[in-house]
Design a protein around this nucleic acid. Structure first.
Lengths: 214, 214
DNA sequence: ATTTTGAGAATGAACGTTCATTCTCAGAAT
DNA sequence: ATTCTGAGAATGAACGTTCATTCTCAAAAT
């Protein structure tokens, strides 16, 4: 039992160390990007020698992968604890506010960094793709549940709406990352307006554009 | 006259060379990313030695900057030749089709590569920011002209709509770059639907007609 | 004869990673 | 109580590689 305790304690500290290293790496990646941050930078930020860091992570790529997976798990947890009782649009507005306005610049920049690297490293692409698929599924399920509550019109293509929501989210993140003056909060009204419209099922397509709409 | 011709010819070939080099660099950057592509790769692709390449561009960064500016000019020209006579939505649909579906994967990936690098290199950030500002202005002008034609409701916040259009464009590009199975063309209907709605000025928030604009 | 063009080896810095070595400290042995 | 022991933790200099950039020099053009 004593041995078990010791073992547990040892494990915990190892896990903590890994977390600390990931946090340090995250700060460096946000500051200088994945390629701009050297292992020495990360070691300094983590207050640790290079050799020791390699006892916790086998490579630089493993750091990004670790961060990506941590982010993925975090979002998954946030998604899992959604409460639909106050209506679908309440949920969507809360999420929009959370992901567009509340999320720190650091997290947003990190997200863009992961997207950039996903174009290069297959392992990160794998994590990223799996994450996107999860989000998509989760969103469709959410919209579907909203439809069951009567919050969504029946003839709406939930898949397309979910895709559009994800596209907008990506766009907002990149704009936030690239333009420091960008005001994501000011975008919320038009975003919610668009979202409500997409879920209302009242298509305006066709030649009857202006006059036909009620 | 001979001298003038020679001079002109010399200039032209120099300019051509620069174009060829940029094209080669573009292929390399699309294939491996800015950091993944070495100068040797680019030299090979351009069929040219390193020393010679440096006679045309002073640095690797200048290559990306050159590509970014070339792209910028290209888009600027496309925007300048817009014909509103068939209506604003015809123009918008054409642009959406062009930028979402027609643009090659290569151009899309290149665009994401430039965005990634804009987070690091100040010069590229400058070009990118200026480009965004130009696009924003063009879009607002376009929507404004559409409003003059009566294609747009009066109480619409054109600035917010332009911002949203750009956000969606960014999102689509990233999705195209990261997900080979993504079907941008299938997104066109819902995109146009959303666009029409935003410009109709009929906010659906709470059933009120307060308007999304300030 | 002078300049331009080009090739390709050379350079030096920076990087990720490794490794021989030292440190730490809990428990066993005395 | 003190010393011994050994294994994991940590170090940081060194390594090999890669890369952007520069140097050198010869052939072509003027």
């Amino acid at each position: 039992m004593t041995e078990t305790l010791v073992q547990t304690k040892s494990d915990r500290t190892k896990s903590d160390r890994r977390s600390e290293i990931l946090a340090a790496a995250q700060r460096c990646f946000v500051r200088s990007g994945f390629h701009g941050a050297s292992m020495q930078d990360i070691c300094s930020e983590a207050g640790m020698s290079a050799g020791n860091l390699y006892r916790y992570f086998p490579s630089k790529e493993a750091l990004i992968a670790g961060i990506a997976e941590r982010d993925r798990a975090e979002v998954a947890q946030e998604f899992a604890s959604v409460d639909l009782s106050q209506g679908l649009f309440h949920v969507l507005e809360g999420m929009a506010h959370h992901y567009f306005a509340e999320r720190s610049d650091e997290q947003v920049k990190l997200c863009t960094e992961i997207m950039s690297e996903a174009r290069r490293h297959p392992e990160i692409a794998r994590i990223s793709t799996a994450f996107d698929a999860d989000v998509k599924k989760w969103l469709v399920d959410l919209l579907s549940a909203g439809a069951d509550r009567g919050d969504v019109a029946r003839d709406v293509d939930l898949d397309a709406v979910a895709a559009m929501l994800m596209i907008i989210a990506d766009g907002v993140w990149w704009r936030r990352a690239l333009d420091p003056t960008f005001n994501a909060k000011a975008l919320l009204p038009i975003f919610m307006d668009v979202t409500r419209h997409m879920l209302s099922g009242r298509s305006q397509t066709g030649g009857r554009t202006k006059g036909a709409a009620k």
